[in-house]
Design a protein around this nucleic acid. Structure first.
Length: 432
RNA sequence: UCCGGCGUAGCUCAACCGGUAGAGCAUCCGGCUGUUAACCGGAGGGUUGGGGGUUCGAGUCCCUCCGCCGGAGCCA
């Protein structure tokens, strides 16, 4: 009789086992207790029958309250009435700790603010269990994708000097005698350096944006995967993106579909996510939006509502390509045939989820890059090492950044991105 | 920062035109041998976010501050 995790119970039918976990609910009919037990790997019901256990054990079961930590000893039994197919006939139980106070998270619904204040406990809830397990698989799928293609993982720094896209949305920290340092809002510039050394590179880590955004798509700290490949053009880049996203979806469907079903996700919406993804130029997107009655003109950025409208056209993610250079970052390569637009794409997830990837071919010509930095009124001296990359064997290269939490939200079908990360950081929330 | 909304029991919410605070869950007590947010009976639980004002009377109307939510801008 040994310690077994709930996820392995189906391999121990008829055996005596020990479960170490917590009581997340209890129902009783007087002479029979139904203990709802979780252990971090799954959920199972324990049956305590008055006629089958010592009176002392039955009384002990009666005293259990929400989130009491317990060791359960009993025999595993297949039962069609159980949602997971197995139950445990409890023979003995050992209380590790009875909660000192009533557990704050009840069985009925709670408001978002209350739940976020109790995020450290909310993580124990079923829904969060399933979401964060899917997140875990998405991360594994992402790493696996790059491993299979022989990309090299390059961890980019979190402390950076004043470099990036713009200075308005960086978090400042004091950095010894150097004065101000900034938390990274992207590792892209470093990956561009690394791809000239390793060819195919990626990173995966936290990113920080000091934007005062209050929407269901924004966090101040979020995880981003970026990839950068030397000699890749815009077309190669888009292919890589649609293969990455398809790989992730396929992986999650294979390894975590139970979790998606438990979250109420319609798997059919994910099963068709395979290359190629539809493409739409920025010009076509604007035309489409105008026909739908949106008040947009060529040169405007595409906002949240517009993104939702575009992502609802298709049942796969859609690439929106070649935006006006005016509204995009300085490092994006202008289209040689049409210099007013840049060779970039935003990948919008379907069902209204919107942008999950931002991508572009980068400028590899030294003079053009200097020109664009000046055009955007950025300080040339801050980009000295970045410009260096264009002096020594510069080659065309491309890359992208994928917002992990947005992908998690889309795949899980979440209404808000804050459930897609264990401890969300938003403009007004730093605790827990 | 701007626009809109909300703040009532531990939690989720209700309370009509301004008339004196109510339900479910949770907790405690009792009942029930197949419950699935179990159910049934009973009990305790409130400075209606803070401050000020109007009124015979304010949860309700006005001012102000605080907190939160949603959206915009910006972005993944």
């Amino acid at each position: 009789m040994g310690w077994v995790y709930i996820e392995d119970l189906k391999n121990h039918i008829g055996k005596e086992v020990e479960i170490r976990g917590w009581i997340f609910n209890k129902r009783s009919s007087g002479k029979i207790h139904f203990l709802q037990i979780r252990d971090g790997t799954g959920f199972v019901q324990g049956i305590v029958e008055f006629s089958k256990v010592e009176p002392e054990i039955f009384e002990r079961a009666k005293r259990l309250r929400l989130e009491t930590s317990v060791k359960i000893f009993g025999r595993v039994r297949e039962d069609e009435r159980a949602p997971t197919g197995v139950e445990i006939d409890v023979e003995n139980l050992e209380i590790v700790q009875i909660p000192i106070e009533d557990y704050p998270i009840g069985k009925k619904e709670h408001g978002v603010d209350f739940l976020l204040d109790h995020r450290h406990l909310w993580l124990r809830s079923r829904r969060q269990f399933h979401i964060l397990r899917v997140r875990h698989e998405i991360i594994k799928a992402t790493r696996d994708f790059y491993d299979r293609r022989n990309f090299v993982l390059i961890d980019t720094p979190i402390f950076t000097g004043s470099i990036g896209e713009s200075a308005g949305n960086l978090f400042e920290v004091n950095y010894f005698d150097y004065g101000k340092a900034y938390l990274a809002q992207t590792g892209q510039l470093y990956l561009e350096a690394a791809c000239m050394a390793f060819g195919k590179v990626y990173n995966f880590g936290p990113t920080f944006r000091a934007e005062k955004s209050k929407t269901r798509r924004h966090l101040t700290e979020f995880w981003m995967n970026e990839a950068e490949v030397a000699y890749y053009d815009h077309e190669d880049n888009m292919k890589l993106q649609e293969e990455l996203i398809s790989h992730i979806v396929r992986w999650v469907l294979e390894k975590a579909s139970d979790h998606l079903v438990a979250l109420g996700r319609d798997l059919k919406k994910l099963e068709g996510i395979e290359p190629p993804f539809p493409r739409m130029s920025y010009d076509e997107a604007i035309d489409h939006l105008r026909k739908k009655g949106f008040d947009v003109k060529w040169g405007d950025d595409i906002g949240g509502d517009e993104e939702t409208a575009l992502s609802n056209i298709f049942d796969k993610p859609v690439f929106i390509c070649n935006y006006p250079r005016e509204i995009k970052a300085f490092y994006m390569l202008p289209d040689p045939e049409r210099p007013e637009v840049v060779l970039c794409d935003d990948l919008l997830a379907p069902e209204g989820y919107g942008e999950i990837i931002g991508a572009s071919q980068r400028i590899h010509d030294y003079d053009l890059l200097v020109e664009r930095i000046k055009e955007k009124d950025l300080p040339l001296e801050a980009y000295d090492w970045y410009l260096d990359l264009r002096k020594y064997g510069s080659v065309p290269h491309s890359g992208f950044g994928m917002g992990l939490e947005r992908v998690v939200a889309w795949i899980c079908g979440l209404k808000h991105i804050r459930e897609a990360i264990p401890f969300p950081r938003t403009i007004y929330r730093l605790n827990p």
